[in-house]
């Protein structure tokens, strides 16, 4: 047992901030991918022909029932097995994006179904096509109604992005591990990293509250 000394963290401020920046990048890109793919999966499951809808349903079922960490290994090593060599960063973003797309799709599907049928009928009767109705009438309302749940998924995404450190992406956890390998001070660095995640989480939560308030007002 040795005394704790948090001053060992100071020389590594730049490295940790760099890691934090990559955590933000991973979260934002993962969020964008998971949002649009979430809509795509939800629409495909509801409206696409069976040949497309069933495989997507199977994929969603598979990704909701297995751990993200396992999926990251599949994507990272699986892509190279089928001849696509991508850097870890791309595999990490794709993994996070697809994993949370599935959760977003699950929410969005319920959101689309619960948009009043009169909205669709109204849009169709004033001459909107099926795609236009979805794009301009149904999906915007579904997104607005499911925003709190999508926001929750985003908060989980921020925390789960720490898992990509395992496949070697230099985000916050990975940069802490680098510092620990030089200083042998895991406790100080991991507590610092926890505090940084906590701050990111607070910022994200208050941001989401603002967005929700705006949306609430616009109704």
């Amino acid at each position: 047992m040795q005394g704790l000394d948090f001053s060992v963290v100071t020389p590594y401020t730049d490295i940790l901030l760099m890691g934090m920046w990559w955590t933000v990048v991973l979260t934002v890109t993962g969020a964008v991918i998971s949002f649009f793919f979430g809509i795509f999966f939800a629409v495909a499951v509801l409206y696409a022909p069976k040949m497309i809808a069933y495989p997507i349903r199977f994929f969603m079922w598979l990704f909701m029932g297995t751990p993200l960490l396992l999926q990251l290994f599949l994507i990272y090593f699986g892509l190279s097995q089928i001849g696509i060599n991508v850097p870890a960063l791309v595999a990490g973003i794709v993994g996070l994006g697809l994993h949370f797309a599935v959760y977003n799709a699950d929410v969005m599907r319920a959101g689309i179904v619960s948009v009043d049928a009169g909205q669709t009928e109204g849009a169709r009767s004033i001459g909107f096509g099926r795609f236009q109705t979805l794009r301009y009438v149904v999906i915007p309302q579904a997104v607005r109604n499911t925003l709190p749940a999508i926001g929750n998924n985003l908060i989980v995404l921020l925390k789960e992005s720490s898992l990509v450190s395992i496949i070697g992406i230099a985000e916050l956890v990975h940069s802490a591990q680098l510092a620990i390998s030089e200083t042998f001070r895991p406790f100080e660095f991991y507590i610092t990293v926890a505090a940084l995640y906590y701050i990111l989480n607070l910022v994200l939560e208050s941001g989401l509250r603002q967005v929700e308030k705006q949306v609430e007002v616009s109704r």
């Binding site: 925390k159 789960e160 720490s162 898992l163 450190s165 956890v173 620990i180 895991p186 406790f187 100080e188 991991y190 507590i191 990293v193 926890a194 995640y197 906590y198 989480n201 607070l202």
Partner: peptide
């Protein structure tokens, strides 16, 4: 508010 992974690392490595 913090990742479960970090909580495990604090406990096991720290």
């Amino acid at each position: 508010g913090t990742p479960c992974l970090i909580q495990l690392f604090v406990l096991y490595f720290g």
